[in-house]
Structures are given as structure tokens and as C-alpha cells.
Write a protein that binds this DNA or RNA. Structure first.
Length: 482
RNA sequence: CGGGCUGUGGCGCAGUUUGGUUAGCGCGCUGCGUUCGGGACGCAGAGGUCCCCGGUUCAAAUCCGGGCAGCCCGACCA
């Protein structure tokens, strides 16, 4: 929109403009979070206040994930925030992994507690404590429980949504009769819940694979992951699904009697996705003008904007808003007269509303309105009678276009290489794909020294490793990460 | 935890080197008016423990000592 830019640039606006993504991505991110009124820092370091606009996005993400989790057979439940320290210590690797991140409550009721209480960093331990009671027979399996809650982890360098001391998430926990069943379920969650929600709802294309031993969840046998590329080329983990084997069922004593009457340990999984996804949404789709939301997640899909105070304008705008609402869209009528049109347009643009319907006297004189598509920033005149159809067209197409754009971006910044020495260059701006056997555990250390890491291991065609398939046959996706 | 930097109205900053009247500026906020097709303008206002404690001095945002907090960079993480 060169014409628009010329107009913008002619106005005094320096203080109001976002920093450009290319120049300073982290600052751009912070500004978008602040100016789109998504969140701000809480009074305790690392904590986050999620503001209504951000929370409504979260509610929509939540709904998308919840619906899919339930389709996979899960039921929601709730377990306590406080975990006895002794329970937390039952699984050796798990404690060791989480120890440096724990918040421990030592006092209550004005007195020192007999036994310190841990604030949950994740709930494997409490939940499995109860699984041990609930599971008796093979008829009790699979047991599939999910909870939506907050968790708390000590963080050295917090960043809103991406890494906060307290965050909101969903954690699923399951128990199965055998390894194959557990694995199948972990993969189902990975693909049918996380990948599907990320790609279809959030319009963020993801790579799927499993983590190396170094990056694996503390206590897991295998960690499966969805990884996406952000607008600065860095990777962000969008959701993880863990195969826990019998690592927890043994120390927690979760056993069932099989059909023959012999006692067996359950095979387990756990999986989670958090408010970090909001950060992903911002960084995967945002542009120099702010947020770009896929309609399914936008608190408001269409804003009908009265260009100026005028009876006819107001009448038509109200009618259009009502029509669009009846057509099932989430619509906001912006008929404020105390704020200039330019300011209002820019505000909605910052907040990422997918479609703007601008109604002004000049449009009406021609029997039209102006439609603006947020993700392309294109304007088009549309006859009054054709508005509903045009809005539907934009809303239905937006997610696919955002996804295609993100995918093209990722592909453009991904290079395949064959040796460790060649990883640094593509890794600095995006992803390098390299045979895992050319990296190995030693190579991983070397990568870490260059601020790079293996995001996941997958087949050359992007598929998941089959059971028993050796890592040596797989490709490592290497990049910088959040 | 090691290294670098910064604490001044809601936000972003200047002023500190070389102490000196009433602590400024931009954005934001309130009121009135003119505006309104891409972050409008004028006028009038409100808003401050200059991070905290102590010291030096006739006088401290400014100098000295001690504390606290935050940011950035390095080792961990959804």
C-alpha cells in the first residue's frame, strides 16, 4: 500500500510507531504485547497479568485444544496446587530435572511447616499418587485425565508469554496397559490435538519429531514435540507429548491385574501446551503494524468502523454490524466520535482484527463500503449488498493464507546440510536439517556452544520415527530457540 | 551465580561529568473548542517520596558510603 504509507509518513507519528521487526525483533515483540493490550508484567518478577484481549485469545486456543483432547477420550479434572515435597521426590530423574525450578512453601498459618510444600511445576507426582489408587484392573485402563491449571517454575529470564514464572497450561496424564498403547496415545495427542490445533486453528505450521536425550522431559522415555519457526527464524516449542514408560508407575506403584490375574505396571504418557502459544501466535504472524490473528482466535473478527460522525453512516454501520452478527461473526461496532478515524484504524490493526469494514460518507455516496483485510493490508470497495459475502470470503481464507505465508517463510529459511560445520550459517537465521549421525551427543554440545540446539529428530520426509527405528536413520532439525 | 548497564509523573527519556531559584521534554491523561477517508490541532489543566537509608554541604536528582530493584549478555526451561 504505497499510497497509504505516503499518507502515514506525512504525519507526525514517530512516537507511536512500532519498532520494525527486522531492526529489533525482541523490542517489537514487547511493544506489540503492550500496545495490543495482551499482557503486562505482574508485581512479582516473572509473573504475568493477561489482559482481556490476550485472555480472550487464550480462551479460544483453550477451546480448540480442549475439544480435541476430549475427542481423544480425555476427561478434565483438577488436582491441587500444593504437592508434598516427599511425593515430588519419588521419581529420581524427575526431581533432579525440576529441582532448580521449584518454589517451595515453608510457612503457613504463621508457622513453619513440618514438611515443606512444593508449588506444582507440573503434576505428574500428585496425579500418579492418585492413579495408584484408581487403577486396579485392566478394565480401568486406559485412564485419561487432563487438567487446565497454572504451574509455577523459577525462571531466570522471564519474557511475557514465552517464559514466565507462573503460566497457564493444560496437562494430560494417562495410564495404559502396555507400551504400544501408550505410544499410540502419545502420538495421537501430538498429531490430532497439537499439530491439528496449531495448523488448523492457529495457522502456524509445525514440524513434528522427538527430542534428543539432552532435550527430553525429566522422567520421560521419549518426548515428542511440535516445533514452529517464528518471524525471526528462531524455533518455539508449541506442545509436547511424553512417553513415560514405567518410570512413574514403578515408584508410585501403579499396577493393574491383567486378564490372567497377574499384576502389571501401567505404561504412561503426559502432554502439555501453555500460554506460550500466544507468544507463538504473535511472533509467527505479526508484522510491522502489529498482531495478525487468524479469525478463529480473534476476539473480534470484524470491526465495523464509522469513518466520521454522520447519521446515515451510523445507521448503515449499525445495520451492517447487526447483519454480520446474525451471520455468526464476532463483530464490534466502532462508532466512537471522540477519537480520530486514523487512530481507531491503527488500533484495530495493532490488535490484529482480521477484517475492517470502513463506512464513510464517500463510500455511501457510491453505495459502497471499504473492506480492509488485516493480514494483507489490502483495501477494496465493496457494494453494500455484497459485504456479508466478502467478509465471509476473507474470514474463510485468512487462516490458510497466514499458514501458507508462515510455511513459505520457514521453507525459505531452512537449509539441508551434511556436516556439523555447515550448520552455523543456516542456523543463525533459521533451521538446518542435518543427518543425526553427523551430530551425535558430542555434536550437540558443540551446537550448544553456538547457541544452537536440536529442536527435533524426524524422518527425512518429515514423518515420525517408527517404534524401534534408530535415531541414526533420522534427520535433526537444528536452530536457535526460545 | 559471573560480567556490563540503568533506577527521575502512567510510558519513554533529558538533566548528574562541573551541587545553586519553581526538576524539564515527548507520548499518554482531564476539560473546552476546531477537526475527523490512516496515529489531528489550539488553548487551559492534572499528575513527582528524582529507588531506599545514611553522610558531606548554607544548599543534593547531582558528591560520598551502604542497601534494594530492574535490564542486557553468558550456564537451565512449556
Amino acid at each position: 500500500m504505497p499510497a497509504d504509507d505516503a499518507i502515514r509518513d506525512a504525519r507526525p507519528r514517530a512516537a507511536a510507531t512500532l519498532p520494525s521487526r527486522a531492526e529489533d525483533f525482541p523490542r517489537w515483540y514487547q511493544e506489540v504485547v503492550a500496545r495490543a493490550e495482551l499482557a503486562e508484567n505482574g508485581p512479582v518478577r516473572g509473573t504475568m497479568v493477561i489482559r482481556p484481549w490476550g485472555y480472550e485469545i487464550w480462551e479460544r486456543l483453550q477451546a480448540a485444544i480442549d475439544e480435541r483432547i476430549k475427542a481423544a477420550g480425555a476427561h478434565n479434572a483438577y488436582f491441587p496446587l500444593f504437592i508434598p515435597e516427599a511425593l515430588m521426590r519419588l521419581e529420581a530423574e524427575h526431581v533432579e530435572g525440576f529441582d532448580p525450578e521449584l518454589w517451595v512453601v515453608t510457612h503457613g498459618g504463621g508457622r513453619k511447616l513440618e514438611e515443606p510444600v512444593v508449588v506444582r511445576p507440573t503434576s505428574e507426582t500428585v496425579i500418579n499418587h492418585f492413579f495408584a489408587k484408581w487403577v486396579q484392573s485392566h478394565r480401568d485402563l486406559p485412564l485419561i485425565v487432563n487438567q487446565w491449571c497454572n504451574v509455577v517454575r523459577w525462571e531466570l529470564r522471564p519474557r511475557l508469554f514465552l517464559r514466565t514464572t507462573e503460566f497457564l497450561w493444560q496437562e494430560g496424564h494417562t495410564a495404559h496397559v502396555d507400551e504400544a498403547d501408550a505410544r499410540a496415545f502419545a502420538l495421537r495427542i501430538l498429531t490430532d490435538v497439537y499439530r491439528d490445533a496449531m495448523e488448523e486453528v492457529a495457522a502456524v505450521p509445525v514440524l513434528i519429531g522427538h527430542k534428543t536425550a539432552r532435550e527430553r522431559f525429566a522422567g520421560a522415555v521419549r518426548t515428542w514435540t511440535c516445533e514452529a519457526m517464528m518471524g525471526d527464524g528462531k524455533a518455539l516449542q508449541m506442545g509436547t507429548s511424553h512417553e513415560l514408560g514405567v518410570n512413574f508407575s514403578k515408584p508410585f506403584g501403579i499396577q493393574y491385574a491383567d486378564a490372567a490375574g497377574s499384576l502389571r505396571y501401567v505404561w504412561q504418557t503426559s502432554w502439555g501446551a501453555s500460554t506460550r502459544l500466544i507468544g507463538a501466535l504473535i511472533m509467527a504472524h505479526g508484522d510491522d503494524f502489529g498482531l495478525r490473528l487468524p479469525p478463529a482466535l480473534a476476539p473480534v473478527e470484524v470491526v465495523v468502523l464509522c469513518v466520521r460522525e454522520d447519521d446515515q453512516v451510523h445507521r448503515v454501520a449499525s445495520q451492517l454490524a447487526e447483519d454480520l452478527r446474525r451471520a455468526g461473526r464476532r463483530v464490534h461496532l466502532d462508532d466512537r466520535t471522540d477519537t480520530g478515524f486514523g487512530r481507531r484504524s491503527v488500533d484495530w490493526e495493532l490488535k490484529g482484527v482480521p477484517v475492517r469494514v470502513e463506512v464513510g460518507p464517500r463510500d455511501l455516496a457510491r453505495g459502497e463500503v471499504t473492506l480492509v483485510t488485516r493480514h494483507t493490508r489490502t483495501k477494496e470497495p465493496v457494494a453494500l449488498g455484497a459485504v456479508a459475502g466478502a467478509v465471509e470470503r476473507i474470514c474463510r481464507g485468512a487462516a490458510a493464507e497466514l499458514r501458507a505465508e508462515a510455511l513459505a517463510f520457514r521453507e525459505g529459511r531452512t537449509a539441508s546440510v551434511t556436516s556439523l560445520a555447515e550448520v552455523a550459517e543456516p542456523g543463525a537465521t533459521g533451521f538446518a536439517r542435518i543427518p543425526w549421525r553427523a551430530v551425535g551427543e558430542h555434536g550437540e554440545l558443540e551446537l550448544a556452544a553456538g547457541a544452537l540446539s536440536v529442536r527435533c529428530l524426524q524422518r527425512a520426509d518429515g514423518g515420525l520415527a517408527a517404534p524401534g527405528e534408530p535415531d541414526d536413520a533420522l534427520v535433526a532439525v537444528v536452530g536457535r530457540s526460545y
